[in-house]
């Protein structure tokens, strides 16, 4: 009787072992992913597809050292944001400057001011010490900067999903009521040798928080 029952069991196990060969596991990201060996500037130059317009603008306004300032945080706008800005700045194609170098000095100075809106000179802002409550700091162009996290849903459970960072700058002059224009951060906490870099969303954010 025993022999018979054991025979049945081994048939069962033999045939049914669920082979999980169907799941091609690529594994997890190691936690060193967020570290970049090099300065913030070299990080931007290492990804031309996203930042080559930005790096040229920085160089033209020779703001490298502000960007590479020790212990600073840099919110990098992508090329598409600057592209949309230029479309707005020069609506009709005829008299749009052919190259960045051909941008008149006045406009270039204004763009330098915008670049400094993205630099937090003396503070390392990282995701871990932010929360859904606003926290504040000042930009290089001493405008008020505001940071907060927004949580998404997870499978229909409200506010239990991933959290992403929002970076907003107050555009109104000091005395008037504040108006913060927000931008979502799509790559957070890139630690370079000179500070921290966050990359802003490209399709809905226009360079200079227009």
């Amino acid at each position: 009787m025993k022999l018979f029952l054991s025979l049945c069991c081994c048939i069962g196990i033999l045939l049914s072992g669920c082979d999980d060969a169907y799941y091609n596991d690529g594994g997890l990201l190691d936690n060193q992913i967020g570290v970049y060996e090099g300065t913030t500037m070299s990080y931007l130059e290492s990804q031309p597809a996203l930042f080559d317009t930005l790096t040229t603008l920085i160089k033209l306004n020779n703001m490298e050292e502000e960007v590479n300032r020790k212990g600073s945080t840099f919110f990098a706008p992508q090329n598409y944001s600057i592209y949309n800005y230029l479309l707005l700045k020069y609506p009709d194609p005829e008299n749009r400057p052919k190259t960045l170098e051909a941008i008149p000095a006045g406009d270039m100075a204004e763009m330098a001011g915008y670049i400094s809106d993205y630099i937090i000179p003396n503070e390392q802002i990282v995701r871990s010490d932010l929360s859904t409550v606003y926290s504040y700091s000042t930009t290089l162009s001493d405008k008020k900067a505001r940071f907060n996290l927004v949580r998404e849903d997870y499978l229909g459970n409200i506010n239990m999903g991933a959290a992403y960072m929002i970076y907003s700058v107050n555009l109104n002059p000091p005395a008037t009521p504040e108006f913060y224009s927000p931008a979502k951060v799509v790559v957070t906490d890139v630690a370079t040798t000179t500070g921290t870099v966050h990359v802003l969303i490209s399709d809905t954010h226009i360079f200079g928080f227009n």
Partner: peptide, 12 residues
């Protein structure tokens, strides 16, 4: 057109 942040935000 950019990838959704769940793919770009590698440190999340």
């Amino acid at each position: 057109v950019a990838m959704p942040s769940m793919y770009t935000d590698v440190t999340n």
